[in-house]
């Protein structure tokens, strides 16, 4: 089997198990909704204030939801001792990384695709612009590329779900900053050229961390 077929087989396994349990998408969606609600209570319902803080709320919601769903990605493997099975599979560690990352990316994108319109509805914002969709997609790729590495790492520690946010949040600072600022511009109807530097930083982050995580992943899950 080629590398991609092996990786996609792992993605397919994750997608199938998610289709049957509906564990990650349903719980993270509810969580995302609750974060949006909590922010609404925290900032009040003033339309002007909401416009100002909306990009921030959006990305805090996505970041926290990302931590939650990335955690599940490997915890479910460990709970049933599936990780051992994955390790003895005749596939390279890199294929496991790509497969798991694609699976998580898929779940995150589905969650965001549902959460964005809800967000637009609650905050009376025009969020369905191609600019915002692209920013969201690229930032999510960044989250997942490094998040899957840290998810595999933290699941092998004693504190498990405590470790991921502590590792993940400081590392993704550049993506969060760029995504918030670029979304702010996109929401106020900026052109592509005004958004380019933000998009470039997110792209650079994606590329660098895909490569770095790809090569370090095998050390994290080996015995």
């Amino acid at each position: 089997m080629s590398f991609w077929r092996k990786a996609l087989a792992i993605t397919r396994k994750d997608a199938l198990s998610e289709l049957r349990t509906k564990e990650i998408i349903s719980s993270v969606l509810v969580f995302a909704l609750l974060v949006i609600l909590t922010f609404n209570f925290a900032f009040g319902a003033n339309q002007e204030t909401m416009k100002l803080v909306a990009p921030g709320i959006l990305w805090v919601t996505f970041t926290f939801s990302g931590v939650l769903s990335l955690n599940r990605s490997f915890i479910s493997e460990v709970e049933q001792d599936c990780l051992e099975g994955l390790k003895v599979c005749p596939v390279g560690r890199e294929a496991i990384y790509v497969g798991k990352a694609l699976g998580s990316l898929l779940f995150m994108l589905i969650i965001e695709a549902i959460a964005l319109p809800v967000f637009a509805l609650f905050f009376n914002l025009q969020v369905l612009s191609p600019q915002l969709v692209l920013i969201t997609f690229l930032a999510t790729v960044g989250f997942v590329s490094v998040g899957i590495l840290f998810s595999a790492l933290s699941v092998n520690t004693r504190a498990r779900e405590m470790v991921l946010p502590i590792l993940f949040l400081p590392i993704v600072v550049p993506v969060v900053i760029s995504a918030v600022k670029a979304s702010e511009l996109a929401l106020s109807g900026a052109t592509w050229s005004a958004l380019s530097s933000g998009i470039l930083i997110i792209l650079a982050f994606d590329a660098i961390f895909l490569v770095a995580s790809f090569f370090t992943f095998s050390f994290v899950i080996e015995e």
Partner: peptide, 14 residues
């Protein structure tokens, strides 16, 4: 390794 690579990107984005 990941942290070291990240620091310049943080500096750049901020």
């Amino acid at each position: 390794i990941i942290g070291f690579i990240d620091v310049p990107i943080i500096g750049m984005s901020t």
